[in-house]
């Protein structure tokens, strides 16, 4: 028989995998509900996941490709921008929805007990589903330009995990801070915009002088986008030294974020 011990907030265990496993059905239920409800009463449904990168690629190609003649290391601009944009849209959308996941679900948090991190995991999984849909867009574009994915495509999966880790770590911090401090709601869109300019979405990463590469690698999304470009648009792989820095940064986000989240978690139901 299961035995539960209820203790005050400071005495809980930091990580309880067995408990997370017990709540797997709840994870599935909330995930299913989120996906189900999101595309209800929309006319084109899941096509939204495709339309956004498609339209943005079109706009960016005209502005940055044609009007500003952005250097792309010889790659056709639409492929260049789409291979970065797919990663970026995943990062920005998932980061935003994961960071707001606590505040967006007060009716669940104040009514039932479950490890609150489940809401964050749901947000990331939903983002992943969207990403996989949008990713299909790349195939006709590659065929159109007669491009074959390079060996870098194999590296893309682990690098994508790095993006997920980064999002997870950062949104652990922000979602927990968002509960008492509604300022986060105003900060988030600004933060995402800033982050986009700091990531090589519309411009190539080698536009930055080499001596700044360490600073640049503090944003783990840089090497993820570079890997995606290397894999699908051609060009050079990211520097390994940058990848190392990015992995450490993402790990720090995750560990500190998880610790902070667990400390704050107990207060969510009282504040929301």
């Amino acid at each position: 028989m299961l035995t539960f011990h209820i203790r005050s907030a400071g005495q809980q265990t930091l990580l309880d995998p067995a408990e997370l496993w017990r709540f797997r059905h709840l994870f599935r239920t909330i995930l299913w509900r989120t996906i189900r409800v999101r595309y209800q009463q929309t006319v084109i449904g899941m096509a939204w996941a495709l339309l956004q990168p498609l339209l943005l690629t079109f706009v960016f190609t005209i502005i940055f490709g044609r009007l500003l003649s952005m250097p792309t290391n010889g790659q056709p601009y639409p492929v260049f921008v789409l291979s970065g944009l797919l990663v970026w849209l995943f990062v920005s959308q998932t980061f935003t929805s994961a960071s707001t996941s606590m505040v967006a679900n007060p009716h669940l948090i104040t009514r039932i007990y479950f490890p609150r991190v489940i809401l964050l995991m749901v947000a990331i999984t939903v983002g992943l589903v969207d990403f996989l849909c949008a990713f299909a867009l790349l195939i006709p574009v590659l065929i159109w330009y007669g491009l074959m994915p390079s060996i870098g495509a194999l590296a893309f999966i682990p690098m994508f995990m790095l993006a997920i880790m980064t999002i997870f770590g950062l949104s652990l911090w922000l979602s927990a801070l968002y509960v008492p401090y509604r300022d986060i709601g105003h900060l988030l869109p600004f933060l995402v915009q800033l982050w986009m300019f700091l990531s090589p979405v519309v411009y190539p990463s080698n536009l930055l002088p080499h001596k700044y590469s360490f600073l640049y690698a503090l944003n783990p999304i840089v090497v993820v986008i570079d890997t995606s470009r290397w894999a699908f648009a051609g060009g050079a792989p990211p520097q390994w030294s940058m990848v190392e820095v990015s992995i450490i940064v993402a790990l720090v986000f995750c560990v500190t974020g998880f610790w902070f989240f667990r400390r704050m978690e107990a207060t969510f139901a009282d504040i929301l």
Binding site: T3, R7, S8, A9, Y113
Partner: peptide, 14 residues
Amino acid sequence: RITTPTEGHATLHG
């Protein structure tokens, strides 16, 4: 377990 106590503890079997 929706909210945590400030002090004391409880044990539930089941």
